[in-house]
Design a protein around this nucleic acid. Structure first.
Ligand SMILES: NC(=O)c1ccc[n+]([C@@H]2O[C@H](COP(=O)([O-])OP(=O)(O)OC[C@H]3O[C@@H](n4cnc5c(N)ncnc54)[C@H](O)[C@@H]3O)[C@@H](O)[C@H]2O)c1
Ligand SMILES: NC(=O)c1ccc[n+]([C@@H]2O[C@H](COP(=O)([O-])OP(=O)(O)OC[C@H]3O[C@@H](n4cnc5c(N)ncnc54)[C@H](O)[C@@H]3O)[C@@H](O)[C@H]2O)c1
Lengths: 210, 210
DNA sequence: AAGAGAATGTGAATGTTTTCACTAAAATAG
DNA sequence: CTATTTTAGTGAAAACATTCACATTCTCTT
């Protein structure tokens, strides 16, 4: 059992998220308990890794039986901070932004879009899927008023630098960045970059070299 | 300089993709050479890491000067298999699928969508953005005829297991999976999973534990 | 042309993550 | 009730990844 959660290795946190999805899946099949081996095999990990990962946060299992699914789901939700709803804002209501806003998955989990920011004057002041669209220039003010915790960036790459500066100034705690410009965490803002090309390029690398 | 490219560590391949974007960026500023330090600082890595990564594939730099940008771009493109166009197919023309197909970035790089597969009878036989829509039941036949190399999965999660089975049977070399169902590489098919929740959940973990 | 400075490439050291291999507890079968 | 099987938890070992630190080479200035 580790002490400092703040410096938990990223691979462990990522796997926790995978375990959670798997547990929800198994639960939906009506099962009530699961072994580290099954959790591992479904995801291509080793059973020792599953046990070691979970042991960082406490002892949740029962020797001879495995893990109680409901209990483990609640524990992981607690660890990942998913016992409450997080307030998101979308920045850039283009093709990708609309797909994300429309996606039901977010809402049915722990995430809720509470604002959209756009540059196009024709969109500002309107709503999209019931969510108010604001002028990006008012990010600071609205972010505070709406208690925005995570911004989702789906703007053209030329706009990223300027908008990110505004995000930092507004002191928004986190950003999920879908643009191909790699951002580094700065100020009080934690960034996670999602790069589609990188994903495709790891595939083409291995396809080319086997 | 490493020998077996096929077992190059994933972190190195992912950084290569980051270096490439950075180099293109720097090139567009009119520059002709760059140091490992600059390549590192722009991306939050160490300069030693940049040099060590590149040294796995050859010696591309010049002591005292750094790396020639055009040369390094070409080398990395070669390593990542980006000197030719890869033939993609989209499976599932929904919200996310449409955003991806519409996205210019793919076409202007080394990727080209050559087919769309759908289940909805109303879409089959039509085109979207000039790309023919086929019945998913014909995946095997069309994949061979169109020489599809990578499928992009944007279908509901309930459909994933069945469709993935078809992808494996068709022997398609790779799949980029945007659904929340984690797939494991199997048969001759290499899989890369892209999980938006995982990205959000790593953010909420660290936000919750600082 | 010599010296100072810049920057690579890399073996060795360090740090991190994963796997191994075992102990111990619970469940099950005989 | 005892033996066998199942499975969690965990130090220790191994594998893997990053950083250090320096010899070497190239550039630039004077
Ligand atoms: N569409 C995809 O499938 C896809 C895939 C990978 C990456 N991306 C990246 O996501 C980003 C958006 O892609 P897209 O296809 O949705 O583009 P898009 O052009 O359809 O949408 C961008 C939107 O951002 C708005 N915008 C521009 N500047 C802004 C600003 N300063 N503040 C607020 N809003 C602003 C635009 O008005 C537009 O509505 C791009 O960086 C792209 O590279 C998209
Ligand atoms: N929209 C998003 O922003 C987003 C974000 C993250 C993940 N995802 C995931 O991506 C997937 C698609 O999301 P979406 O929002 O585009 O959903 P969607 O419902 O808009 O689109 C799904 C499309 O797939 C088609 N389809 C269904 N079964 C099929 C089959 N067997 N073969 C071929 N086509 C089939 C449907 O007809 C539909 O057109 C989902 O798994 C979702 O969880 C979406």
């Amino acid at each position: 059992m580790r002490e400092k959660l703040g410096k938990m290795p990223l691979p462990i946190v990522e796997r926790l998220s995978v375990y959670l999805l798997t547990l929800l899946d198994i639960k939906s099949e009506g099962r009530v308990s699961v072994s580290s081996l099954e959790l591992a095999e479904r995801n291509g990990f080793s059973s020792a890794q599953v046990r070691k990962d979970l042991s960082c946060f406490g002892t949740f299992g029962k020797k001879g039986t495995g893990y109680d699914i409901d209990l483990l789901i609640e524990k992981i939700r607690g660890i990942l901070g998913l016992k409450r709803t997080w307030r998101l804002a979308l920045i850039g209501l283009g093709n990708l932004g609309k797909a994300l806003i429309t996606h039901k998955g977010f809402t049915t989990r722990a995430f809720e879009f509470v604002a959209i920011f756009e540059k196009k004057p024709s969109l500002v002041g309107k709503q999209y899927k019931g969510i108010q669209i604001y002028n990006i220039e008012n990010l600071d003010k609205i972010a505070k008023a709406k208690r925005i915790e995570i911004v989702v960036l789906t703007i053209p790459k030329e706009e990223v630098a300027g908008v990110y500066e505004k995000v930092i100034v507004a002191g928004i705690p986190a950003a999920l960045n879908f643009t191909p410009v790699r951002l580094l965490s700065k100020g009080n803002t934690l960034v996670k970059n999602v790069n589609f090309f990188q994903n495709l390029e790891t595939l083409t690398f291995y396809l080319s070299n086997f």
